[in-house]
Amino acid sequence: MTDSIHNEHGHSHHGEAPKKSKYEEALDKYNLDIDDNAVKEEVKKLIAEKVHENDTPEVKRFLMGSIELTTLKTTDSEESVLAFTERVNQFDDAYPDLPHVATICVYPCFAETVSQALEVDGVEIACVSGSFPSSQTFPEVKVAETALAIKDGATEIDIVMPVGKFLSGDYEGVSDEIGELKAVCGDKKMKVILETGCLKTAANIKRASLLAMYAGADYIKTSTGKLEPAATPEAAYVMCQAIREYYEETGIQIGFKPAGGINSVMDALIYYTIVKELLGEKWLTNQWFRLGTSRLANMLLSEIVGQETKFF
């Protein structure tokens, strides 16, 4: 009897566990005992059995409309970003019967350039923020960068979860930082990049997914694309499981964005299949499913029109 009384007050006598934080209590609602090999096997089976049925012109057109056309190079300049944006404007004229990309994704200092040049309705302007790709700077700097990006026209913000804090078990620090940046974003959508290649295990990926969603993420995203390995089908599978369970628990729908290492149309079809099988039709819109890539746009376009096309 005394044990439970002590626990209620958060004392830890006789080596009892201290009172759980709200983050740990939230995580307790989910199964985090996931075996990496089991995930591998499930993904292998899913790919073998289901991907071929999604290899259709309709799905490829859909994927075209889910692309976040991304340029995040050290060499980006106002001129290059302007030309990049112009391609999106011209695409609308050149292929009026195809869906335009979902988003143009750039560094925050180019938000204004894109926002002034973009003429296509319904294309979002995403900026990577919060000291992308390392997330290693002062919280004040992350807040300022995010606020400036939004002021300059960003309609979506992609931040990187503080991975070092996560790996050292500081879930409160991770969640507070994500929450603070979501407060800056307000009604603008915020994607949280987990950098799954650094998280190593399926259990870590699931835990990070849940923390990010509870802290205010509107989307969870696999990777920055700056580290190897980037997106993998296994990471996507675990993240989509987490999104589904979170939705069942809270009723809140969270979007999914694989990014980094999406090198072929087949890669994109695999991610589409994972979303379709784990999350269902409700997620198969370019509102809830995005692909962070640039090279995929020309590949998809080539397959859709039936000849090698280098438009972007």
Rank of each mutant, 00 (worst) to 15 (best):
Q136R: 14
V163C: 01
E172W: 05
K257L: 04
D76T: 02
K22W: 11
L46G: 00
F289E: 02
K189V: 02
G216L: 02
A126E: 10
E42V: 00
F84K: 09
E277P: 08
A230S: 15
E41N: 15
L82K: 11
S4G: 07
S4D: 15
E140T: 12
V101G: 06
R87L: 08
K310N: 12
V123C: 09
F62W: 02
T146E: 00
T113I: 10
C185F: 02
L63F: 05
N298K: 13
P162Q: 06
D36V: 01
N37I: 14
A215D: 02
K45D: 14
S4V: 15
D93M: 13
Y271A: 07
L98I: 01
K142E: 00
S66E: 09
G292A: 06
R244Q: 11
G10H: 08
E249K: 10
N286F: 11
K282D: 15
L167I: 12
E68M: 13
A217R: 09
G261N: 07
C198G: 08
A212C: 14
D28P: 02
H11R: 12
E303R: 12
M161A: 08
F166C: 04
K310G: 06
F110N: 04
S209I: 09
P18E: 11
N263F: 09
E68W: 04
M64G: 03
T75D: 13
V128H: 09
K22T: 13
M64S: 07
F289D: 04
K221C: 12
D170K: 13
D93N: 14
E68R: 07
C198S: 13
P139S: 13
T75S: 15
I252S: 12
E53I: 14
I104E: 01
E119M: 12
S134W: 06
K19T: 08
A26E: 07
P233G: 08
K310S: 08
G164Y: 06
Q241W: 05
Q136G: 10
G260Y: 03
K40F: 11
S175T: 14
A259M: 07
